[in-house]
Simulated scan of single mutants.
Amino acid sequence: MKKLLFLLLLSGITRFGYAQTPSCCHNPDGVTAFAALGSQEEFRMEHKNPLPYVYQGTGGAAVTFNTPDGTPASGFLFKAKKPSQNYLFVYHEWYGLNDYIRKESEKLYNELGGAVNVLAVDCYDGKVATNREDAGKLMQAASRARLGAIMQGALDYAGKSARIATVGWCFGGSLSLYSGLTNGAQNIGTVMYYGMPEKDVSVLKTLHGPVLGLFGNQDKSINPAVVSEFEKNMQAAGKTLTVKRYDAGHGFANPSNPVFNEAATKDAFGLTSAFLKKTYGL
């Protein structure tokens, strides 16, 4: 079943490769639709180049794992204090797995009391952007097939007995949902911050576990209409979705973004913490 779900996902996210143009009769999936935003000046201008930051924590460590396409992938792991089958997959913004993501992963690890293995997944194979122009290029160039292979590799790394939840921001918000689909019955919950959702109800029907969606009403790309359609589609798929909308823009939870909203970020983190603790039974 796990391999079948991966093949279904892979076929879905490769049907519109980034160099292709979808036909008029189909809508691209959330990952492809979000990646295409990297070419739009308006979307790039919604982001401020991240401020320099060096992660100084000592709790995490770099790891590598195999993937179905034969090219090893990597990540940054905070290992549970005691052996645990609980995993949280963290998906980075369009900049890549930078030190901000390592810091946020550690924050989530500590919030969950060190009871969950927290794996920040590197979807760019070591590439990291330090400005919005390069971030847009990396996001557009991210191969749908490679992304699917990395997600499957992370799932295999966690193991067949793992209970997995996912979380991500921006491009990672879309990837969080697709990782949830890849994880099949092992997926127990998904958190997505202002990511482009999947529109295909038949695909959403394969998703396991509830979803927490955190969005900004001032977001020009993942706008209120997109969020409302997601709610409608999830209802049609018979899935549980909780949405919180903030009077904020895209990237409101990123302190290096000009639209950073401290109050919304604090509230969203509280909801994320409560959602994950309930999901893991902590």
Rank of each mutant, 00 (worst) to 15 (best):
K278F: 04
D156K: 08
A154M: 05
F260K: 01
G209H: 08
V116G: 09
E104M: 09
V90N: 09
A154P: 10
I222C: 14
K137Q: 12
L119F: 03
S174F: 01
E133Q: 09
G59M: 10
L4C: 01
G148S: 13
V90T: 14
F6S: 13
K79A: 14
A145S: 15
S84K: 14
E46H: 04
S202D: 13
T272P: 05
A165E: 07
L4E: 15
G270I: 02
A274W: 00
I101D: 00
G213D: 05
D247P: 02
S161Q: 15
K81Q: 15
G173E: 02
G209I: 08
H250C: 03
H47R: 11
L138P: 03
A35E: 14
D156G: 00
R132L: 02
D99S: 10
C170F: 02
N86V: 06
C25P: 00
G60S: 05
F76D: 04
G159H: 04
G30M: 10
P255N: 06
R102M: 13
P197L: 07
I222M: 13
Y91S: 01
I164L: 10
S74D: 01
I188V: 15
E198P: 12
L177C: 00
R245N: 14
R44W: 06
G59Y: 06
R163W: 06
V31C: 01
L181I: 08
H250L: 11
R144N: 15
S39F: 07
S105E: 07
E41A: 12
P258F: 03
N257K: 06
A185Q: 07
Y157L: 10
D156R: 07
L204S: 06
D200C: 08
A36M: 14
L177D: 00
D122C: 07
A248Q: 11
F34M: 15
G159F: 04
K277P: 07
D125K: 07
E104C: 02
S105F: 12
V54L: 04
K127F: 09
E133R: 05
S202N: 14
F260W: 10
S161M: 09
T64H: 11
Y53I: 02
M151F: 14
K48L: 06
P52A: 04
E262T: 02
L9G: 06
E104I: 00
F171N: 05
N49M: 03
C170P: 04
T32V: 15
L77T: 08
A35G: 14
S202R: 12
R102V: 07
Q140R: 14
N49T: 03
G136T: 10
V167I: 15
L77K: 05
V63D: 09
M1W: 12
A274S: 15
A263S: 13
F215Q: 01
K127I: 11
F252I: 02
K244Y: 11
K266W: 01
L119D: 02
M151S: 13
L97W: 08
C25W: 03
G148I: 01
R245H: 09
F76Q: 03
G209L: 11
V259I: 11
G113M: 07
L212C: 08
L181W: 03
P224F: 09
L108E: 06
A33S: 13
V226D: 01
G216Q: 00
F78G: 11
F269V: 00
Q40L: 14
I164C: 11
F16S: 05
Y246S: 00
Y95P: 10
D134W: 03
N223V: 03
